[in-house]
Design a protein around this nucleic acid. Structure first.
Lengths: 203, 203
DNA sequence: TGAAAAAAAACGAACGTTCGTTACTATTGT
DNA sequence: ACAATAGTAACGAACGTTCGTTTTTTTTCA
């Protein structure tokens, strides 16, 4: 019975494999995940996988490319509303952290990439991701007058680093006594970044 | 009679194993490193390792505890000179990035920890590391008057995040066309952080 | 001190298991 | 129909670990 789907069966199975591999690689890393685990989670026989991918590494290259956090986060950031740079930064940061919170495995995929694919596919990843970053940099550039004279690409790096590390430490602190964790960390991070980049008002 | 000043043979071998495992785990991750690789690099027969460690995981727990970057970085930061907060931040950041540059494997060990030991030994790690962080937070606290009213622990998180991510992106950008990389990134990062945290001078 | 006894450490083969991959056959989708 | 997709079984290699044994280091006691 042909399902009312524009996708062919093979394409759907291929996506199932990618999804299964994705959740496994996030939980266990690349070397820690076996083809048998993938086939099991995908509801497929071991041999069947090789109709869709030539080998294990090809699966994970596809996982990292298609599931890369930047695909979801960057457009979200770029579309953040805000006429002033302050509004823009606040909204962009809020969006990013909300998205990271919704998908906690985003960050871990980057780590797996760094740990197990460094020097192999990392340059390729960046060729895919980097062009998407540029429009966001321009978004900073458009507020040039309101900002300190800092290279907009550095602005972007600082922005990303600050809020990714906010999210990371927030994760780490999950196992720490709550008494030590201050409230409103998020707002403080926004404050630090805003004051760090906004030009002093001369009036 | 055991010499109190010199290490016993077993202790020396144990350290050799830890060192070998450390370099391998940084290069390949935990699951990607085999006991045979460790034994080979340590110049030891495969079976000999088990005179010093009960199993593979015990080795890596020891690696992560004894080689954790914070052991080296935190004291360095705490001892950073500077009477004003500006001098302190600048020197501390400089020291940290210099140390990270000298030992590029520091960061990767944290990634391996996060990817492959998450939820297992991470709480224990933090029990070891966290007490070392507190004196550094106090270092920020001592400059309270010069700073915006931000929780000092958040200050510390922002500081670490900003400069670790400076270092990370600097690494990533190694594969990117040099034309896109602005000069003096480091100083810009320091500027952003300083302006972000220093109270506005009222004069 | 120095030989004997004990303990620790190193060895290398072998264990059972799991790994990624392949070959081949059966089934399915279009 | 026939290509695409699924399943089954098997391959050799590598995995972590254990084994009995030998070698080296440390301790004991004259």
């Amino acid at each position: 019975m042909p399902q009312p789907s524009s996708l062919t069966k093979g394409e759907r199975t291929r996506q199932t494999i990618i999804d299964a591999a994705h959740t496994l690689i996030v939980e266990q890393g690349y070397a820690g995940t076996s083809m048998r685990q993938i086939s099991e989670r995908a509801g497929l026989a071991l041999g069947g996988i090789y109709n869709h991918f030539p080998n294990k590494e090809a699966i994970f290259v596809e996982v990292i490319i298609s599931k890369h956090p930047f695909h979801q986060v960057l457009p979200l950031l770029q579309a953040a509303p805000g006429d002033t740079v302050e509004e823009f930064v606040r909204n962009a940061a809020k969006r990013m952290i909300a998205e990271l919170g919704r998908r906690p495995d985003f960050i871990k995929l980057i780590f797996v990439e760094l740990v197990e694919f460094e020097g192999r596919d990392l340059p390729r990843m960046f060729q895919v991701i980097f062009p998407q970053v540029l429009p966001l940099v321009q978004r900073f550039q458009s507020h040039e007058g309101e900002l300190r004279p800092i290279d907009p690409f550095i602005l972007f790096r600082a922005f990303l680093g600050l809020f990714i590390s906010y999210y990371m430490t927030e994760l780490l602190l999950a196992g720490i006594p709550a008494a030590l964790k201050p409230e409103n960390s998020f707002d403080s991070f926004v404050e630090i970044f805003l004051h760090g980049v906004i030009a002093a008002k001369d009036n």
